[in-house]
């Protein structure tokens, strides 16, 4: 019984990280109606950038995060304005194909620069400390911090979408791009901002991943798939749904892992397929926010 509670707790905490990965994906689909196939690779790129920055400037991972996240946001804005905006239109293939190309480039760029070795960020005792919850259960400080970050990011985005002028512009541009222009909204700029936010959030996710575990340059695609599964499980277009989706995925993986070390990731995929078959609109279908 205790072991199972522990399993579920670890799964819950993993869900926070998955939600961070999923948020950017949900955001770019919500605003631009496009999926960035290189989403996971950008997370890994951010992780390796943080590794490089932390090593070069002898910074701790969180200081490195403060440098890398704005840089990734700028990269996202630039990528959207210079490349991806040119591909948006009625045909859904061009943005997918272009970001697929980006994914190939990033993966091999990382292999070229950092070799195939895995890397991680050392956060000192923070990486190993844990809080006792009583009853023999304990939760790591780092997973708690990641979950807290996920909730904070989602709350901030929820506020942004619901209350701010930029958030209204995001929703308007998503509803009807042409009419949004008639309101004085520069769609291309708005899309750039949305991609900047998506990239910043996924950079946070990638850096947390590198603090928690070893990352390899070729891990991006797997991260994209988890993020995607979290989005679908949670329900398209629901910000808080991505957190729920991440948690379901994390728990499914933790449960699978308890049965057999080879079954963890598979159990996550099967949970995703089950949701797809039984509830194709996700657990929390809502298209209003994001």
């Amino acid at each position: 019984m205790h072991a199972w509670l522990d399993t579920l707790l670890q799964g819950l905490m993993t869900g926070g990280l998955y939600a961070l990965f999923a948020t950017g994906l949900a955001l770019s689909f919500g605003v631009m109606r496009m999926i960035n196939i290189a989403h996971g690779d950008f997370a890994i790129l951010a992780a390796f950038l943080a590794v490089a920055v932390a090593a070069a400037l002898e910074l701790n991972p969180f200081a490195a995060m403060l440098l890398v996240v704005p840089a990734m946001a700028a990269l996202g804005y630039g990528l959207q304005r210079l490349v991806l905006n040119r591909t948006l239109g009625k045909d859904i293939l061009p943005p997918l194909l272009v970001t697929f190309g980006c994914a190939i480039v990033i993966q091999n760029l990382l292999l070229e620069v950092f070799s195939a070795d895995t890397r991680s960020l050392d956060a000192g005792s923070l990486g190993t400390d844990s809080l006792a919850l009583g009853g023999g259960l304990a939760v790591g400080v780092l997973p708690l911090l990641i979950m807290g970050s996920a909730v904070a990011v989602l709350a901030a985005l929820q506020w942004l979408f619901a209350r701010s002028a930029v958030g209204r512009a995001f929703r308007a541009a998503s509803d009807d791009a042409e009419t949004a222009q008639l309101m004085g909204i520069d769609n291309k700029h708005v899309y750039g901002l949305a991609m900047a936010i998506a990239m910043a959030v996924v950079a946070v996710a990638g850096i947390y991943l590198a603090i928690r575990a070893n990352v390899s340059p070729t891990e991006g695609p797997a991260r994209l798939i988890y993020a995607f599964e979290a989005v679908i499980i949670g329900g398209l277009g629901s910000l808080w749904g991505t957190l729920a989706g991440g948690i379901v995925l994390g728990m499914a993986q933790a449960i699978g892992l308890r049965f057999d070390p080879g079954w963890g990731i598979l159990a996550g995929h099967l949970a995703f397929l089950a949701v797809l078959v039984l509830r194709p609109n996700g657990l929390f279908p809502r298209t209003r926010d994001a």
Binding site: A165, D175, A180, G184, T287
Partner: peptide, 20 residues
């Protein structure tokens, strides 16, 4: 009319002032 379906009446009006 082309109103934004995911925005409320008031938000539709507010977005009209986006140009400032």
């Amino acid at each position: 009319r082309r109103l934004f379906p995911s925005l409320t009446v008031e938000e539709n009006l507010l977005i009209g002032a986006y140009a400032g």
